Simulated scan of single mutants.
Amino acid sequence: MSNPFVVEIKRLPGSDGLPLPQKMSELASGFDLHAAIEEPMTLAPGERALVSAGFALAMPAELEAQIRPRSGLAFKHGITALNSPGTIDADYRGEVKVLLINHGQEPFVIERGERIAQMVFQLVPQVNLTEVEELGATVRGAGGFGHTGTR
C-alpha cells in the first residue's frame, strides 16, 4: 500500500464533544460526518438546510473531497445531500457544511452528533484544455440523454 495523503483537519467552535469524520469500517471509502448543531433541527418535507459538520480541511492539491448522502438516511427517511456529490476544492479553507433536503413524507429531526453525510476523497488529475476546430469522430457521435438505450 502506498503512503497515504495527509489531510489536515481543524475542529471549529461548536463541535466540542463530537467525533471528527471517521470511517465506520476498515474498508469503508467514506468518512461519516456528524451534525455540529447546538439544538435539534427539523426538516419538513421538501425543506432544505445547510448543516454544519464542525470542521475545516487543508488537503494536497491532488485531492478533492466529495460530500455524499448516507444511504440509510436516504432509504429510511428520504434525507439526501442536495448537491450530490458536493465538491470541496483543495484551496477551500472554510467550514464544511452539508446541504440536506427532505424528500420524505414526514418531518425529520436532525440531532446534534447525528451522522448526516459521508466524505470521500478523490484524486484530481491535472488537465490542460486545448481548443480545436474539429473533434475526432466516434460511433456515438453527439447522441446523449438516453441515446444508447430505450429507457
Results as ranks from 00 to 15, higher is better:
Ser71Val: 05
Pro107Ser: 11
Glu114Cys: 02
Ala142His: 13
Asn3Gly: 08
Gly78Ala: 11
Ser25Arg: 02
Ala49Asp: 03
Val96His: 12
Val51Ile: 15
Thr87Glu: 02
Asp32Ser: 08
Gly149Asn: 12
Glu106Asn: 11
Pro107Phe: 04
Leu20Phe: 12
Ser15Lys: 08
Leu57Ile: 07
Ser29Val: 13
Gly54Cys: 05
Ala56Trp: 06
Arg11Ile: 02
Gly143Trp: 09
Phe5Met: 07
Gly143Tyr: 03
Ala74Tyr: 10
His103Lys: 14
Gly104Asp: 10
Val7Tyr: 08
Leu63Gly: 00
Gln122Cys: 11
Ala36Gly: 07
Phe31Leu: 14
Leu27Val: 08
Met41Pro: 01
Gly136Asn: 14
Gln126Trp: 02
His34Gly: 01
Gly86Phe: 11
Leu50Gln: 08
His147Leu: 02
Glu38Pro: 00
Pro69Ile: 11
Leu63Asp: 00
Arg70Val: 02
Lys76Phe: 05
Glu47Ala: 13
Ala61Pro: 06
Glu26Leu: 06
Thr148Gln: 02
Glu26Thr: 12
Gln122His: 12
Pro125Arg: 10
Glu133Ala: 15
Val6Gly: 07
Ala61Asn: 09
Phe31Pro: 12
Gln126Ile: 01
Pro40Met: 01
Thr87Val: 10
Pro4Lys: 06
Pro69Arg: 10
His147Pro: 01
Leu82Glu: 06
Arg151Gln: 15
Asn3Asp: 10
Met59Trp: 11
Tyr92His: 12
Ala61Gly: 08
Met1Pro: 09
Glu26Tyr: 09
Ala117Glu: 07
Val96Phe: 09
Gly17Gln: 14
His34Cys: 06
Gly104His: 09
Ala53His: 04
Met119Pro: 10
Leu99Gln: 08
Leu63Phe: 00
Val132Gln: 15
Lys23Leu: 00
His77Ser: 10
Arg115Lys: 13
Met41Ser: 01
Ile88Trp: 11
Arg140His: 13
Ala81Gly: 07
Thr150His: 07
Ser15Phe: 09
Gly30Asn: 08
Pro40Cys: 02
Glu106Lys: 15
Gly46Cys: 04
Val127Trp: 02
Ala81Thr: 15
Met119Asn: 12
Glu38Asp: 11
Arg140Asn: 14
Gly144Pro: 01
Pro69Gln: 14
Gln22Arg: 09
Pro4Val: 09
Pro21Cys: 02
Thr148Ser: 10
Arg68Asp: 09
Arg48Trp: 05
Pro13Trp: 02
Ser15Val: 02
Asp89Pro: 09
Glu47Asn: 03
His34Gln: 06
Gly113Thr: 04
Ser2Met: 10
Gly72Glu: 05
Gly104Gln: 13
Leu123His: 12
Arg112Val: 11
Ile101Ser: 06
Pro4Asn: 10
Val109Ala: 04
Leu43Val: 11
Phe121Met: 03
Leu27Met: 06
Ala74His: 13
Leu123Pro: 00
Ala36Gln: 03
Leu82Met: 15
Thr80Ala: 14
Gln66Lys: 14
Ala53Asn: 01
Pro85Leu: 05
Gln66His: 15
Leu20His: 10
Gly136His: 06
Ala53Pro: 11
Gly94Glu: 05
Pro21Leu: 05
Val127Tyr: 01
Gly94Ser: 10
